[in-house]
Design a protein around this nucleic acid. Structure first.
Length: 274
DNA sequence: AACGGAACCTGAAAGC
DNA sequence: TGCTTTCAGGTTCCGT
């Protein structure tokens, strides 16, 4: 699931369940989600009894701040999600981590981290430790910071990789993934293969607007009474071209193409993206 | 330094 | 039907 909109959804789920609560119980089912060599018992020790003071998101990373000064950095990888539950709910399929918090009610609130493919991370930093370097290196987040067109223009001027893989570099814009990059380039009518440095300021402005709009739209789709991730199995594909290779371009009706750029599938319209 | 490709994992869908 | 192959929205490491 996870690009910026899905991670923002996860942030809200965690905030609703955990903010200002004390962590009563921690369970790590699979140590591979942790940093190499870190033992589940150490994570349990660091987190138990602490109070959650903030849940932040930057790009695709989440940061849970504890009153002890410890922090948890959570990344959903390709298939991770945080799900709200009750403490007496059974262990869920693919559950890798669980946090239970005390509430005034009888039942205890619980959040479960599910991740079949195990590309996600759950990294705990002790009170005096520095933040994760990847977190610190993240570029501007389109939702939190907006996109400064001149700054982006200046940054892209130094890159000769195609624009599509450049957009996936999290130090360029934090949170843009394969879908948002694909959709944004389509809306801005830019060929994904163009070297990043060749884009004009005008094109970059169009791209920034398209990405911002695409993210806002995807977040809006997740809201409403029944919160669910977009693109769950069976859900209709809500995107303009992502996943629609071979079908007619929504703009010019010629068939959408699919190529591989820097190892990632890339759908585009060879006729109206230039 | 910059780049392509493999690696990390598992499940679902497509292909045969 | 059932076995095999391919692909997946992310990141990081390794060799050239």
């Amino acid at each position: 699931m996870p690009e910026l909109p899905e991670v923002e959804h996860a942030r809200r789920t965690l905030e609703h369940a955990l903010l200002r609560k004390h962590i009563e119980h921690v369970k790590v089912y699979d140590a591979r989600i942790l940093d190499d060599g870190v033992k589940p018992a150490a994570v349990v020790r660091t987190l138990s009894g602490t109070r959650v003071v903030a849940i932040q998101r930057r790009g695709k990373w989440l940061r849970i701040e504890l009153d002890s000064g410890a922090r948890v950095f959570s990344h959903l990888g390709m298939t991770g999600k945080w799900v709200a539950a009750k403490s007496d709910d059974a262990t869920m399929p693919f559950e890798k981590v669980r946090l239970d918090v005390a509430t005034s009610k009888k039942t205890t609130r619980s959040v479960r981290y599910l991740d079949p493919r195990l590309f996600g991370r759950f990294v705990v930093r002790a009170p005096r430790d520095v933040d994760l370097p990847t977190w610190t290196a993240l570029g501007p987040d389109p939702l939190l910071d907006g996109i400064d067109v001149d700054a982006l223009h200046a940054k892209l001027a130094r890159r000769k990789l195609p624009i599509k893989p450049t957009l996936l570099d999290q130090t360029v814009l934090a949170g843009v993934g394969n879908i948002q990059a694909t959709e944004g380039l389509f809306t801005a009518r830019i060929d994904p293969r163009r070297p990043a440095r060749d884009l004009s300021r005008k094109e970059i402005a169009a791209l920034a607007r398209a990405i911002t709009r695409s993210i806002a739209k995807t977040i809006a789709l997740q809201e409403g009474p029944i919160i669910q991730y977009v693109e769950e199995a069976g859900a209709p594909n809500p995107f303009a071209i992502y996943g629609n290779e071979g079908t007619p371009c929504p703009r010019c009706k010629r068939p959408l193409a699919k190529i591989v750029l820097a190892g990632r599938g890339t759908v585009f319209c060879p006729h109206c993206q230039r």
